[in-house]
């Protein structure tokens, strides 16, 4: 449902994404792994049409993201990094706004909001301003916004970042529950998450894909059978700098 071919994005002289090709089918949960600055968020921003690709093609459900942005964007639910939402609105107002912009009728919007609220467990905070909510609830408001129109494609940038273990568990359960009917991409640098929810893992480093396979296949690459070691062997993080600074 998501097809990416030769995707390149440059910022001035910096190449953030340098030729990424991927296909994600229905039923797949793709974990997008990589060190900070590897190009995960930039790739997601291009899939969702926020950034224009410098080169390459992206199609979502058969619609080219650059040429038919609205058709593609209608098929996507997107949770941007940090789950931004309008701080002066309540979750109900915010979700109603999203529903209206997405062209849902009043009746359909009400149903969609009820479903999204139930799935993300927002019932208790519906009439509190978003700026007064805890980080966990803010993240759930972002999730509710992303799944509101029951999109066939879900793109989530670090959906569990900053959540406590219980909340992480709840979000992963939600992702697993939706995975059969959708094509899902989540980015993360929490490796246990890949084991917990992903059917496939793609490791990206310096804008290029360095590994692509099921979590089990990736584990087989390492003698220690630990995902951490696979990750460290394949990516060049600035961890070395930290060691030097510490010594």
């Amino acid at each position: 449902m998501i097809e990416i071919e030769g995707l390149v994005r440059r910022f001035g002289t910096l190449t953030a994404v340098g030729g990424v090709s991927l296909k994600v089918a229905k039923g797949e949960v793709l974990g997008f792994l990589g060190p900070n600055g590897a190009g995960k968020s930039t790739t997601m921003k291009m899939i969702t049409g926020y950034l224009a690709p410098s080169e390459g093609r992206i199609t979502v459900c058969g619609h080219d993201v650059v040429e038919q942005p609205f058709e593609a964007q209608s098929a996507i639910g997107y949770l941007p990094e940090g789950a931004p939402a309008y701080p002066d609105m309540t979750p109900v107002q915010f979700l109603s706004f999203i529903a209206r912009v997405r062209g849902l009728s009043d009746e359909a919007a009400k149903k969609a909001i009820d479903t999204a609220v139930a799935r993300t467990g927002l019932q208790g905070v519906l009439d509190q301003r978003i700026e007064t909510l805890s980080k966990g609830f803010k993240r759930r408001v972002g999730l509710a916004q992303a799944i509101l129109h029951d999109p066939p494609v879900l793109i989530m940038d670090e959906p569990t970042d900053g959540l406590d273990p219980n909340q992480k568990q709840a979000v992963r359960k939600l992702i697993r529950a939706m995975s059969a009917e959708k094509a899902i991409i989540i980015s993360t640098h929490i490796l246990e998450e890949v084991d917990a929810v992903c059917t496939r893992a793609v490791i990206i480093d310096k804008g290029k894909i360095v590994a692509d396979g099921t979590p089990a296949e990736l584990l087989a690459k390492s003698p220690t059978k630990r995902l951490d070691d696979v990750f460290r062997a394949l990516t060049t993080a600035d961890a070395e700098i930290k060691v030097e600074a510490g010594s």
Partner: peptide, 14 residues
Amino acid sequence: KTGTLELLMTLPIS
């Protein structure tokens, strides 16, 4: 500043 621009621009509106 709040990042909602990214949200707005990825919704299917011009």
